[in-house]
Design a protein around this nucleic acid. Sequence first.
RNA 1: CGGGGCGUAGCGUAGCUUGGUAGCGCGCUUGGUUCGGGACCAAGAGGUCGUGGGUUCAAAUCCCACCGCCCCGACCA
Length: 569
Amino acid sequence: MRWSQTFIPTLKETPAEAEIISHKLLLRAGLIRKLTGGLYTFLPLGLRALRKVEQIVRQEMDRAGALEIFMPALQPPEIWQQSGRYQSAQGVLLKARDRAKREWILGPTHEEVVTSLVAAEISSYRQLPKNFYQIQTKFRDEIRPRFGLMRAKEFVMKDAYSFDATDEAAQVSYKKMYDAYARIFERCGLKTIAVEADTGVMGGKFSHEFMVPADTGENEVVYCESCHYAANLDKASSRAAKLAGPATTGMPEKFATPGVATIEDLTRHPFDTPAQQQIKTLVYIVQDKPVLILLRGDHQLNEAKLAGSVGTETFRPAEAAEILAALKAHPGSLGAVGVQDFQVIADETLLGASEMTTGANEDGFHWRHVEIARDIAVNKWSDLRLAAAGEPCANCGQPLKIRRAIEVGHVFKLGTKYSEAFNACFLDESGKKNLAIMGCYGIGVSRTLQAVVEQCNDKDGIVWPASVAPYTVCLTPLSVAPESAVMKLAERLYSELTALGVEVILDDRDERPGVKFKDSELIGFPIRLGIGEKSLAKDEVELKPRGGTLTPVKTADAVRTVLAALQER
RNA sequence: CGGGGCGUAGCGUAGCUUGGUAGCGCGCUUGGUUCGGGACCAAGAGGUCGUGGGUUCAAAUCCCACCGCCCCGACCA
């Protein structure tokens, strides 16, 4: 491609709308432009890079035995009603109406469509396993689109769905996708970590997210450097050292705590009660019933874990009025001592806790000398707390760390939720009817592209891995006069490299060298081949790998050297 | 939806407090001089100051409403 013939609107200044480096660079290097919040146009360069990522994804999915199909983005609401997600997912569903005022859904994901397909077409165990995938535009009514392609209303996603006859087979399918994902991100030049992710009410160990470590990421990952445990903060467990607290010195005693509203207040004099010697009591409304949740004062509730414990996602924090009605006190003085009427769930770090202080369900009063086992009727012990940095790893006991990351992929064992809803069954060898066991596997393709930029850049611009670069070689003649020796050589190298299948862009613009150099570095082509009169006088051209050092190369060796340099990238 | 910030030429912005001629840099056009790291000179084009209403002799500027964008939170690839 000749630079003058394509469209690469680079920007010297950063548009004010961009906050993070990858978003700034995508705009400045002329890869994308915003239509409106959360909606972007891919310009020629951006589209080329996107296609590179797609192609890597496609090759690895094919290699893993998945079958590419293409499903409608426009979907009838009926199938969403059938799966129950018309209600449960209404927050993200974008809807449209046709001329007859009939409602349609712009697909945010395709479990409903693919399961309908399989229900109709698959009837025997002989047809399994199957894994269908597609690369397609998804639509989600994001509450807050952000950071360019990172979180958009419309984005490119690869989604795959596996169907298996048995649990063991489903695990094999899961593993294949897991391995394929690791290869895909590696080929894109991304450092990723696979972390255990929240499985919601389904439980189990079969959900992993592929995370790109980045300070600008929206997720928090808990990890252990010594045993390589890694999990999403929503899922992470920690050993959270049980305190060898003081022994209980007597029976519970009620004492006045006027004006105390928080754990923090009680840690100050005259009370001087450390947070870990307090029991925090939260009230949640779980399926219309109040439930008391007990945590150590210095711990935070993890709602995803609560969902696992109560077996439902229908819950919310109680409102002040509901709390008052249930416990006759306001937040700040709540406790579970002597409570019989409601379910009490306690975090396991409180097991055996003694000499604790907690609210007395009377405004301005607390109990002290509380011994959980003796004084509180706990119905259920669960892991409910948010892991915190520094807590011991549940595997090896070393201190855990937390860092931010971008989620680029998610593999998930679905079970039979959708096959049940759509009656996707098959006959097994014995002629018995079984539900297909499903898995689903997503990659945010456009997000992955931006994650690459977020991870691969320096002060001058993007530093593309060759695998996803829009062009791998930028030919930069410093003179473009058609009959000049410089331009003639540039044209010759351009033809030769192109004929060899190298993706070359020839910067044939009549611009000063500084402009060309700055642009090529901003865009980040892996190799720049500079051709100028000075070096040509020595029968040389200049090889400049992005981020590397400039080396003179004899013109006769130019093609071979470029090919070799590309191999290294 | 809650909290915060911002809307002035394609991009970045000044002006707004204290009402009166819309300014600068980049980019763009033309001519010239330049030509190995975002050149220089000269002449230009380009603006419903987000939208609507109000106050006023007069509104980018003051008031009200709405819209949009960005950031923080709940959601997710």
